[in-house]
């Protein structure tokens, strides 16, 4: 076979593999909202939120419960990633990367602050207060935050195309938030904390992406992502959960009750789906470009709505569906690059 044909074949193989990874990411990410929603009604989390509600009120009880759920989610993801690294034989690389704190792993720890206590906690709060479909679709706004941040931080130019994409996503956001809000304003009962959770998810993932990229440039993603979740576990289990326990919330007594078969099963399910959505996301970038990888990955919003409908039988409001469709359309507009730009993702 000649050089030209072989080049074509190689690029075709790369692109189809990249799309496959990105598509798996969308499926895993979408499925994650199933265990994420179910876990709220399982014990000990169900008992916990009603116990705390009696003394501290509904709002605080849901946020504190969301903290414990997010902490367990982080633990489950860490477990899934440790097994993954073990299978790939990457413990050595993991330790080598961890040791490079100044040039490399500090970025993962910094990213975990925004990914964990902001984005993932926000997602769980939105699931608990409003619902899985809202939470999934609200997170779709993250590329807006990410690109605005990149503009101010690295001076990355926003092309006309990207600006149009951002505008379409923002329109989608208005539909997602506005539709439900109008109904609730008229009934006088607005779950503000749930909406705040949705915004936390979008802002957190946008910021996390911009920061983690600095470390992932020069690290293996399998090792880098594990360190990012190591950081998140430290934040939850060494800082936030003990602080909440000190303040007087019954964190440990309920945490110890989480070792029930069904609860553990659901948490492990959450860990596997969330861990692998991150892994597959990063695997797709070198093959099809960050833009396309994120564009396809954003189909998770659609996947989540479909899975929630199939498993729970709840159809979301039409304003959420329209908003989600606009966000996905916007991310495709924003991220569709010319094929010639695929080989290198950054200018020199």
């Amino acid at each position: 076979m000649d050089l030209k044909a072989l080049k074509k074949q190689e690029s075709k193989r790369k692109i189809s593999k990249g799309y496959m990874w990105a598509f798996f990411c969308a499926i895993f990410w979408g499925i994650w909202y199933l265990p994420g929603t179910v876990v709220w009604v399982l014990n000990p989390f169900d008992e916990m939120s009603s116990a705390i509600a009696k003394t501290s009120g509904d709002g605080i009880s849901l946020v504190v419960t969301a903290v414990l759920i997010t902490a367990f989610n982080a633990l489950a993801v860490m477990l899934a990633l440790m097994i993954w690294n073990g299978v790939l034989g990457k413990y050595g690389e993991l330790i080598r990367t961890l040791k490079e704190f100044h040039p490399c792993s500090k970025w993962f720890f910094l990213a975990s602050i925004f990914g964990g206590p902001m984005a993932i906690l926000g997602s769980f709060i939105a699931m608990g207060f409003i619902g899985g479909a809202f939470s999934a679709v609200a997170g779709l706004l993250y590329p807006v935050v990410g690109s605005i941040l990149a503009y101010y931080w690295y001076g990355e130019k926003i092309s006309k195309r990207a600006a149009i994409g951002i505008a379409v996503i923002v329109l989608g956001g208005i539909s997602i938030y506005g539709g439900g809000l109008l109904n609730e304003l008229s009934s006088g009962n607005v779950p503000w904390i749930g909406y705040l959770g949705g915004l936390m998810a979008a802002a957190g993932w946008g910021i996390e992406g911009a920061i983690a990229g600095k470390g992932l440039d020069i690290a293996e993603p399998d090792a880098g992502l594990t360190l990012r979740f190591l950081g998140e576990n430290i934040i939850w289990w060494i800082i936030i959960v003990p602080v909440l326990a000190l303040v007087g919330f019954p964190m440990y007594s309920f945490a110890l009750k989480a070792f029930e078969p069904l609860t553990l099963l659901i948490l492990i399910f959450a860990g596997i789906t969330f861990g692998f959505c991150y892994v597959t996301w990063y695997k797709s970038f070198p093959l099809i470009g960050v833009g396309r990888g994120q564009g396809i990955g954003n189909l998770y919003g659609l996947c989540a709505i479909i899975f929630i409908f199939l498993f729970f039988g709840t159809a979301p409001d039409w304003t959420i569906i329209i908003g989600g469709a606009l966000c996905i359309a916007g991310s495709f507009i924003m991220f569709t690059e010319d094929a010639s730009e695929l080989e290198t993702l950054r200018g020199e």
Binding site: I218, P286, G289, E343, T344, G347
Partner: peptide, 8 residues
């Protein structure tokens, strides 16, 4: 391949 796609 990742280093190349990252522009390094």
């Amino acid at each position: 391949i990742e280093l190349a796609s990252g522009g390094m």
